[in-house]
Amino acid sequence: MERIARQLRQRVPVTKIELVRNLDQDLILKVLKEIEPENAYYCKRVLEKLILFLEENGEEINDDMYEKLSDLLQAAPLNPTQTEVISYCVLSKPGNKDMNLKVREAPNVISGLGTTGLRTWEASLYLTEYLLNTDYCDLKGATVLELGCGTGLVSMALYKYHPTVKKICITDGDSQLIENLPSNLQLNDIPVESPKISISKLCWGEDELPDPNIDTIVAADVTYDSSILDDLVGLIYESMTQNNHGSTLVRNAYIAATVRNETTLKEWENLLNLGVQDKVWEWTIMEPLSFGGIWYPESTPEIRIYRIIKV
């Protein structure tokens, strides 16, 4: 039942939620009431599917289910640019407490308003689970730079659930996304003025890094466009080779890449190989996670995490 509750909070399509007999109807109603102010139409669709499932299986149905569905009959779908608060539950290693994050996003927007950063993409979810649950990512005492932060999920997760991280520099090249970040931080009880956080616009190839002590770079879904790969690799190259004014050199980068276009990804890997030839770094594709709590659409392509390690 907790798994179904997590899926509801993440707005998994009702056709993808695996319903079971002997559902805790009170718990489902409780979760739907939490969601209703943000997306009443989704709640209506869940109840329609759930009641039909229970009826077909001869299960007794709580009267409150019918009453709530009656209340929601006039609910209409959100328009594509409307936002809602979506909750993501990151499962942790056995014996540890699950980690929850809230993000206000426009989940139906792909490239509306000139940006792809108004929704949380699967590579950000995957990178978040990876950084929080593997021993390969040594972030103890690290000053972390996130590139192309979008909704800010990765950085917020590091702040809340990776206490040994020293500082997180959250950046994006889109001013609108930078302006949206404080509200997402507040949703997760993260103080915007915390000395452990900085938020700034960063245009690759133009702006200097926001902190001289950055030693780790993280980024998700920043390799989809071949036109920006030179600037991305150039930034990583400079961060690992140029010691300006006593600054720290970056020693690790973790880049989550969704395999959408093999040609673009091959170009990315060819650029990484130039850094190998120059003996600046080595790179590897990390082993996939063996577990996870976040739901991914069945159509989600393979997601790879590239670790770039300074020689």
Rank of each mutant, 00 (worst) to 15 (best):
M1Y: 00
R3H: 12
I4P: 09
Q7V: 01
Q7N: 02
L8K: 12
T15G: 11
I28N: 03
L32A: 03
E34W: 13
I35C: 08
P37K: 12
A40M: 01
A40T: 01
Y42N: 03
C43D: 01
N57Y: 03
E59W: 04
E60F: 07
I61G: 03
D63Q: 14
N79E: 06
T81Q: 13
I86T: 15
S87I: 11
Y88V: 10
V90H: 03
D98Y: 10
M99V: 06
R104H: 00
L118Y: 15
L118M: 14
T120R: 13
A123R: 15
L127V: 12
L139A: 09
L158D: 05
Y161W: 02
K167S: 11
I178N: 09
I178W: 05
N184L: 11
N184H: 10
L185D: 14
E193Y: 02
S200D: 10
D207Y: 02
L209R: 10
D215S: 14
T216L: 07
I217S: 03
I217N: 09
T223G: 04
D231W: 01
D231L: 14
I236W: 03
L249T: 07
A257V: 15
A257M: 07
N261L: 04
T264R: 12
L265P: 07
K266P: 05
L271G: 02
V276E: 05
D278T: 01
D278E: 08
I285K: 15
S290I: 04
G292V: 10
W295I: 00
E298M: 01
S299W: 00
P301F: 00
R307S: 11
I308R: 05
